[in-house]
Design a protein around this nucleic acid. Structure first.
Lengths: 216, 216
DNA sequence: TGCCATTTTTAGATTAGTCTAATTTTGTTT
DNA sequence: AAACAAAATTAGACTAATCTAAAAATGGCA
């Protein structure tokens, strides 16, 4: 259907859009680790195919069919991540790169069967929602832990931009999705927070980390 | 590690070699549905990388490292086929094309975990042996059903060159791997054979089909 | 309002992989 | 052994995807 590079660009534009960032040429090129001129070329090609609206000098937006294609890719990626963790016993910090390859395998039947095999999961191992066959997914209003104040009782629901390093760090600290968190103290001067977990353990996290832990 | 096209060529050369055919430029190009000149180019590239020995005008042979690479690809392909049938409920005549894509996903850990998840299968859904981590696999001396004579009692062990159409045909006839077969008659004039299956069913197969059914 | 730094696009080159058409080699056949 | 058909290689062109360097556009600020 699409080339690997086209798919990578569609996904990048989608991700930027949903996080509220304008999908500018430079933002896309940074995400894909290519040069801006390469992105311009690809935007032209995608525009010709009717997948993006490219306003020269003013970034790109997905068209309806471009968005549909991007959601298929996100569905594939998140289902494969779930498979790797649930069925093959990978850790959540090991799955991204492999899923990045698997998502380009194009077979609707494969993905639908995989979905069923996994029990139609609604969230992937990082807490991100998995689009269904029609591109629909659960939307939750989450806020970063860094916005909570002392005394709040919350639950860890997803990890934003979870680099493998961050995920590994959390794993080592014994922090997993679904864990109950009580904020015991927040420190103004550096933004770090003291937490009490559901099992009674006490720990402290930096502001950077607290900004990526999305809670409910 | 290798490009998709390099991998396709390695696998084609390997398959030709093990079936006793010389891996000539034209034989490879026919398998890959490309032109002979494209194959010549690729053989040069693979020879530079030390994966094949290319004797111009006299075909190609895999080097030790080329053979090792090809076996990795065959291992991946057959494990994925097994996964599709055993875990996702695909029919054996539906898996080839999808496995053809999945085999290019490169992650040793993925394949080893998949192997374990499937219970270290020794044969794929078509009866072909699956190489282990070290490239070793079971070798069986099979012969085509067409070489059997009336009165022989045999077991269907694999289907050679199983095109999707042939596999689908066998499925419709209720013929599966492992089925016991007694040859009740062979017809000289067109090579067709009369068979009695383990469950008592009687059927007749053409010479072409009998040449592809490998028995023990 | 006009200048300037930043961003984006354009122009032109490069690489991998493919093709067609022409040339060369091989090996069979008379 | 010479000729010829088949197979393989070479030559040259094309496309997709990338890059660098140069030119153009944008938008904030003096």
């Amino acid at each position: 259907m699409f080339t690997r590079s086209e798919e990578d660009h569609l996904k990048a534009i989608h991700t930027l859009s949903v996080t509220g960032t304008k999908a500018s040429t430079s933002a896309i090129s940074e995400r894909l680790d290519t040069k801006a001129s390469s992105v311009t070329d690809m935007l032209k090609r995608l525009a010709e195919k009717g997948l993006v609206a490219h306003e020269p000098y003013h970034g790109a937006k997905l068209t309806t069919s471009g968005r549909k294609a991007a959601l298929v890719l996100i569905r594939r990626h998140r289902l494969w991540e779930t498979f790797l963790v649930d069925k093959l016993g990978f850790r959540w910090d090991e799955v991204h790169e492999v899923a990045e390859q698997l998502e380009h395998v194009s077979s609707e039947k494969l993905i639908d069967r995989l979905d069923a095999h996994l029990g139609h999961p609604r969230f992937d191992p990082h807490g991100d929602p998995i689009p269904d066959k029609n591109g629909r997914m659960i939307t939750r209003k989450l806020l970063p832990l860094s916005r909570c104040i002392a005394g709040d009782h919350v639950e860890l629901s997803s990890v934003r931009n979870g680099t493998d390093a961050l995920l590994h760090y959390l794993t080592r600290k014994g922090i997993a999705l679904g864990v109950a968190i009580t904020i015991t103290a927040t420190h103004e001067f550096d933004g770090s927070m003291e937490l009490k977990l559901g099992d009674g353990r006490i720990l402290s996290v930096s502001r950077e980390v607290a900004e990526q832990l999305m809670v409910q």
